[in-house]
Every structure is written in structure tokens, then in C-alpha cells.
Amino acid sequence: ETEYTFDDKREADRAAKEAQNNGLRVHVTKDGNRWKVRID
């Protein structure tokens, strides 16, 4: 399990989409004014 934090939602969405394309499970959550992408 890996977690990334992004300031920009577009960057978070791009990272999530890339991980999904690689067959990974992805969870995107909002943390204040930042975005967390957790990859299982």
C-alpha cells in the first residue's frame, strides 16, 4: 500500500488513472485542501 499527496486534483486524478490502468486498486480522498491517492 502506497500513499501520495497532491495539491492539485488534476495531478491526483492522473496518478489514480495511471494506477488503475496498471490494474491496481486506487482510493482518492480529500484531506483539507490537498488530495491523497492510496494505492493497494
Rank of each mutant, 00 (worst) to 15 (best):
E1I: 14
E1N: 11
E1V: 14
E1G: 13
E1K: 11
E1T: 14
E1Y: 15
E1D: 13
T2R: 14
T2K: 12
T2S: 11
T2E: 12
T2F: 14
E3P: 02
E3K: 02
E3D: 08
E3L: 07
E3F: 08
E3G: 04
E3T: 08
E3M: 06
Y4M: 13
Y4N: 06
Y4L: 14
Y4A: 06
T5L: 14
T5E: 11
T5M: 13
T5D: 07
T5N: 07
F6W: 02
F6L: 02
F6N: 01
F6C: 05
F6K: 01
F6G: 01
F6M: 02
D7L: 11
D7F: 07
D7S: 10
D7A: 10
D7N: 10
D7K: 07
D8T: 15
D8A: 05
D8L: 05
D8Q: 06
D8S: 14
D8H: 08
K9T: 02
K9R: 09
K9S: 05
K9A: 08
K9W: 15
K9H: 09
R10G: 14
R10T: 13
R10H: 14
R10V: 13
R10K: 13
E11D: 14
E11F: 05
E11H: 07
E11V: 06
E11L: 09
E11K: 07
E11W: 06
E11Y: 05
E11S: 12
E11P: 02
A12M: 02
A12V: 03
A12R: 01
A12P: 01
D13R: 08
D13I: 15
D13Y: 14
D13F: 12
D13V: 14
D13P: 00
R14G: 06
R14F: 09
R14K: 12
R14V: 08
R14D: 08
R14M: 12
R14T: 08
R14Q: 11
A15N: 03
A15I: 13
A15K: 12
A15D: 01
A15M: 14
A15R: 09
A15P: 01
A15Q: 06
A16R: 06
A16E: 04
A16N: 01
A16L: 05
A16I: 12
K17G: 07
K17S: 10
K17Q: 13
K17T: 11
K17I: 12
E18K: 10
E18W: 06
E18D: 10
E18L: 10
A19M: 15
A19E: 02
A19Y: 10
A19D: 01
A19C: 11
A19L: 15
Q20G: 07
Q20F: 11
Q20R: 15
Q20A: 12
Q20W: 11
N21L: 12
N21Y: 06
N21D: 13
N21V: 08
N21M: 13
N22L: 12
N22A: 14
N22W: 00
N22V: 09
N22Q: 14
N22K: 15
N22T: 07
N22M: 12
N22I: 10
N22R: 15
G23A: 02
G23M: 03
G23D: 03
G23T: 01
G23K: 03
G23S: 02
G23F: 02
G23E: 02
L24V: 06
L24G: 05
L24H: 14
L24A: 09
L24R: 08
L24K: 09
R25E: 09
R25F: 06
R25H: 15
R25A: 10
R25D: 08
R25K: 12
R25T: 12
R25L: 09
V26C: 03
V26P: 04
V26D: 01
V26W: 01
V26K: 00
V26L: 01
V26T: 07
H27Q: 12
H27W: 05
H27T: 15
H27V: 14
H27S: 13
V28F: 01
V28H: 00
V28Q: 02
V28Y: 00
T29I: 13
K30N: 07
K30M: 08
K30F: 09
D31A: 08
D31V: 12
D31P: 01
D31E: 13
D31G: 02
D31Y: 03
D31N: 06
G32K: 05
G32C: 00
G32Y: 00
G32N: 05
G32V: 00
G32E: 07
G32H: 01
N33P: 15
N33V: 03
N33E: 10
N33F: 05
N33L: 06
N33Y: 03
N33T: 05
N33A: 05
N33W: 03
R34F: 07
R34H: 10
R34L: 06
R34K: 12
R34Q: 11
R34Y: 07
R34P: 00
W35G: 03
W35T: 04
W35M: 04
W35Y: 04
K36H: 10
K36A: 06
K36D: 02
K36Q: 09
K36T: 06
K36N: 06
K36G: 04
K36R: 12
K36E: 06
V37D: 03
V37H: 00
V37F: 00
V37K: 00
V37M: 02
V37E: 03
V37R: 00
V37T: 02
R38S: 12
R38H: 14
R38T: 14
R38L: 13
R38Y: 10
I39W: 05
I39E: 03
I39H: 02
I39M: 05
I39Y: 04
I39R: 00
I39F: 07
I39A: 03
I39D: 02
D40F: 12
D40H: 13
D40Q: 13
D40A: 12
D40I: 15
